[in-house]
């Protein structure tokens, strides 16, 4: 009996990547949706809350002390000044939650990927599906955050709507890279690496103050970090600054996405096809 599965996979025969890609990453997304439907919503909300709390406490608390900030586009409140950075952080958080701990669990404890890869799915389907799911969460957080800052009157122009696609690119980059690194992690212990890296990156990436407070060499290091790139991408998109600079930020994330996907696929193959 020729089943649909057989017909489908044979249609891909000889196509580019048919060993790694069945062309069905959306089924992995569907699986996550089924599981999410009945899961604890509180986990979703709590991940989102962090940047919002920073915005409220720092923006209005410290904002009271700092007063208005002058930017090339005119004077803005401190809360408005930190909003794009926190938006980028929110996209990052959303993407990293799913692509790190949740992926680690599925890789090592629940044997979910093992089950998926015993079907006619390929490792690239799994990687793309999981990353897409993580980036949707990042995109969701960023969208909700944009609505909140708009409601608080912290956006200055209609360009702010571009924050959402920018945040999705950011989330894609972090999800892809995060999953790639997670696939190499061997223990819970090693997973703490993410926390050790993410918190300083958040504090020093200039979400709360301009990078010019640091000496030149430190600025150069920070500018190479993904969160700094994310903040620049989101800020520039929200201000409608389209030039070579935003292109550099965009390219940075494009590379992050591709490198992440490449290594995730390779690693899944090595882990489950040995």
């Amino acid at each position: 009996m020729t089943s649909n599965a057989v017909a489908l996979s044979e249609r891909r025969l000889g196509k580019f990547g048919d060993k790694y890609f069945a062309g069905r990453p959306q089924q992995v997304l569907l699986r996550n949706w089924l599981s999410f439907k009945s899961s604890a919503w509180i986990a979703v909300v709590s991940g989102f809350l962090e940047p919002v709390l920073y915005l409220l406490s720092f923006g209005y608390g410290i904002g009271e002390l700092v007063g208005n900030i002058s930017t090339p586009g005119g004077d803005i409140s401190y809360a408005a000044y930190i909003a794009p950075g926190l938006l980028a952080t929110s996209a990052m958080n959303g993407a990293m939650l799913d692509s790190t701990w949740n992926v680690f669990f599925k890789l090592n404890e629940s044997r979910l990927y093992k089950a998926m890869l015993a079907t006619s799915l390929g490792p690239l389907d799994v990687a793309l599906g999981e990353i897409a799911w993580a980036l949707m969460r990042g995109g969701l957080y960023a969208t909700a955050f944009t609505i909140i800052i708009a409601g608080l009157g912290l956006v200055t122009s209609w360009w702010a709507i571009l924050a959402i696609p920018a945040a999705i690119i950011v989330a894609f980059g972090f999800a892809s890279f995060g999953m790639a690194i997670t696939s190499f992690m061997k223990s819970h212990h090693q997973m703490n690496f993410f926390e050790i890296f993410l918190l300083p990156m958040f504090l020093f990436s200039g979400a709360f103050y301009p990078l010019t407070v640091f000496p030149g060499w430190a600025q150069a290091i920070i500018k190479a970090l993904p969160l700094r790139q994310a903040i620049e991408l989101v800020t520039r998109a929200m201000n409608g600054e389209f030039g070579i600079n935003i292109l550099v930020n965009f390219t940075y994330f494009l590379v992050m996405i591709c490198v992440g996907l490449f290594f995730t696929t390779k690693r899944l193959n090595a882990l489950f096809m040995k």
């Binding site: 599965a5 069905r24 569907l30 089924l34 599981s35 089950a115 799915l121």
Partner: peptide, 29 residues
Amino acid sequence: GVVPQQDNLDNELTVSENIFIYGRYFGLS
């Protein structure tokens, strides 16, 4: 059809969802 030594069912899903999504992995309608 593969039944591995250690079950690898999807613990977060229900019984029928498990069958459903598994069929979807194979690209069945």
